[in-house]
Design a protein around this nucleic acid. Structure first.
Lengths: 239, 239
DNA sequence: CGCGAGATTGATGGTAATCAACGAACGTGG
DNA sequence: CCACGTTCGTTGATTACCATCAATCTCGCG
């Protein structure tokens, strides 16, 4: 494991406040592995053996049933996944595969549970992380149940444009069919949804989406802070 | 507050293992209130002031955006809701209203956070509860994205029949339109979905649903343990 | 240049929402 | 007790939304 990996992980909200005595054995018993794109890291229904942390690259969380498949989330650096399954010592409800060449830190589940028991600051951070993940999923569920596909795309574009620095465009770093699955639609319908947003000033140039008129797009999308705002913007702590 | 209320709450997984010194001030600073049916207890976007615990009755969690509304979950006795918002001191992402006459214990949010900080067993229980809630929402999201309305209904019937004691029937204790919203469809389409399940032996008699042929219904529903099983059945701890 | 993967477009059928009408159940007041 | 009104559920007709299948297009790459 590289030294700057360690510091990156140390700065994760999940690990930032814990004691050195708890952190060190955690990373020392963990190991970083490099994976090629498209590799399945964990399989739903498997037992949760390791906590996974994306150090570099990108990971797709997905799930299947009855021959159907859907993408539930993307995890980028430095992000944790399947924490809940690890903590409750249960099977995964989601599978994970790399979207690109990725380096992933894996920490044995029992080590994580032991560290949690012995370090209150770590347990506190876990509570915060679980609450964050839970609320994110509630937002996804509302997005899914309350909006049409085109509306979900429009709001996703607005969120992404902001995340990528308000440049009036969004770059998609993965296949469009994956985005479609994440948004709960087929690749074909994503194409049609993009076409429908052309009247709001949205132009598709391969993996680059130009947002010509953010106001028009927002008027169509009707973004809702309780669905679309990142978690730290909903805080009332700063009031 | 009645004495058997206290013992019921004390036996909740969330409070079972905590110390008496932490538990007592928690309930002493909380208060039980009785509410009529249909009353809105909390409103999304409000700040999370109290942890709520349903002592008696039933509560519906719902959310709205752009004039649309959907039911996210039901909470019965003895169940906790909006724990995540309370812990991270943020606004509610969901609203709550009573489905019937209900008694609800309300504990000030800062008391809960203080108790968590001072009692590791309580914090541990919170971690478990959050993980459970998170995984439940993931299951809902999979249900929503991977199944049609009729399939969701069929699986809901199978789960409910089991919960109600394998009697070959399911009693619905609330309006069918509410169930429709919980399942992510309109009341009209729920009716049609019931009609579609008649060939699998499902018969509707007002609020009572007869399941004539559980095998046929299951063949149609294709229940998936990673979506439909209650959390404690997914544990690998007992292996 | 030609191949192949991914994206797009078109055609069609299925699934779901909406609007409207009707019917059953229940409670109230005459 | 019954007439009436209200609420909820169901059914029908129509439209919107979405999935599927097929064909074409684009672009990067051998």
């Amino acid at each position: 494991m590289r030294p700057d990996d360690v510091s990156g992980i140390r700065n994760l909200p999940l690990f930032r406040d814990m004691r050195d005595e708890t952190f060190t054995p955690l990373v020392e018993n963990g190991f970083v592995q490099q994976f090629p794109p498209g590799l399945v890291l964990i399989q739903e229904s498997d037992r949760a053996d390791f906590l996974h942390i994306v150090v570099e690259g990108a990971v797709e969380m997905f799930a299947t049933t009855a021959g159907r498949e859907t993408t539930l989330d993307f995890v980028g650096p430095v992000g944790v996944f399947i924490l809940a399954a690890v903590l409750s010592d249960q099977v995964y409800l989601q599978s994970a595969r790399t979207l690109e060449k990725s380096r992933v830190l894996m920490i044995p589940a029992d080590r994580v549970r032991r560290a949690m028991t012995s370090d209150p600051a770590f347990m506190q951070a876990i509570v915060t992380e679980l609450a964050r993940a839970y609320r994110g999923t509630i937002r996804d569920l509302k997005d899914q149940k309350l909006r049409t596909g085109t509306e979900r795309l429009a709001n996703w574009l607005l969120r992404s444009e902001r995340q990528q620095g308000d440049r009036g465009r969004v770059d998609i770093h993965f296949e469009k069919r994956t985005l479609a699955s994440r948004l709960g639609m087929t690749a074909e319908n994503l194409s049609r949804a993009f076409a429908a947003l052309r009247v709001q000033g949205v132009e598709v140039r391969g993996p680059r989406i130009e947002i010509g008129d953010r106001g028009a797009l927002a008027r169509f999308a009707q973004p809702d802070p309780l669905i679309d705002s990142p978690e730290d913007e909903l805080s009332t702590r700063s009031h």
